[in-house]
């Protein structure tokens, strides 16, 4: 794997390219869209493993940090949904240049899956993998706020401090100061109202939720050939107790690799 910066030199994006390590390279390259903030750190290892496995199976892979996240340029307070979508387009171009692949597919995890669905309206995507996708942005933001407040209270109990004004700040979530604009942009995202365009879709989830069943039905309605995989796991995205858990569900990772290798039956 090769770490590098790409894109506009004033807004450089950090990415890691995994060239195919198989004897023959596939004509399809894979872009991985990370989740955001706290979830990014929980899943970084799983995504790196997925990228390695895909590369071992002949698929060149690029994973990258959106502007103002991870190692890419920009302060967290500059996060912008539109900028992230432009970043994904830049990353797709970069991946095509690096790999000379004719087709690009996207694997998106959590809000990365929502971004992947949104970008499919602008750019041709072959396969779209939605891994525990954020289906409803409003619920996602509300849950993030609730978890942060629960964590603050839990922490203050541990350090035997009264509720402290220094720790309870607006727009501060798990070590990130987020601009109100990004919170409202994310809140407006609703996958069940988003026209998804892709040749194939693969929905893989670690919880059985009504919203995932609805999304599955919605993808079927849009006549996208697809597959669905449920792998029971303790990943617990909505649990404050699981915040520190670095979760690697091997069956999910393997399921995605198999989807790329074998396609939709």
């Amino acid at each position: 794997m090769t770490p590098f910066y790409f894109g506009d030199s004033k807004k450089q994006l950090y990415g890691v390219y995994h060239p195919s390590t198989a004897h023959s390279q596939n004509t399809e390259a894979v872009l991985i869209c990370y989740p955001l903030w706290r979830e990014y750190f929980r899943t970084h290892r799983a995504i790196t493993q997925l990228a390695n496995k895909l590369a071992d199976s002949g698929f060149p892979v690029l994973r990258f940090d959106y502007s103002a996240t991870g190692d890419s340029a920009g302060n967290t307070e500059e996060c912008s949904l539109e900028q992230w979508l432009q970043d994904i387009q830049t990353a797709i171009s970069e991946l095509k240049d690096l790999s000379a692949a004719s087709k690009v597919s996207i694997v998106g995890l959590r809000f990365g899956a929502a971004l992947a669905a949104l970008i499919s309206q602008r750019t041709q995507i072959n396969k779209l993998v939605l891994w525990d996708p954020v289906v409803n942005g409003k619920s996602y933001i509300q849950n993030m706020k609730d978890m942060h407040n629960a964590y603050v209270k839990q922490h203050l109990q541990e350090v035997r401090q009264p509720v402290h004004k220094l720790l309870l700040k607006d727009n501060e979530y798990f070590g990130f100061k987020l601009p109100p604009s990004i919170l409202s942009s994310i809140s407006e995202v609703a996958l069940l109202k988003t026209k998804v365009k892709a040749n194939y879709a693969y929905l893989c989830v670690t919880e059985e939720k009504p919203e995932f069943r609805e999304l599955r039905a919605y993808l079927n309605e849009q006549k996208i050939k697809g597959a669905y995989n449920f792998v029971e796991s303790s990943v617990a995205w909505d649990s404050v107790e699981a915040l520190e858990v670095v979760h690697i569900p091997p069956a999910i990772v393997q399921g995605i690799v198999d989807f790329f290798k074998n396609g939709v039956n």
Partner: peptide, 14 residues
């Protein structure tokens, strides 16, 4: 730093 958690989750502590 009397208010910080181990990984400096809170901006004031960062």
């Amino acid at each position: 730093f009397a208010l910080s958690d181990h990984t400096y989750t809170f901006m004031s502590q960062q």
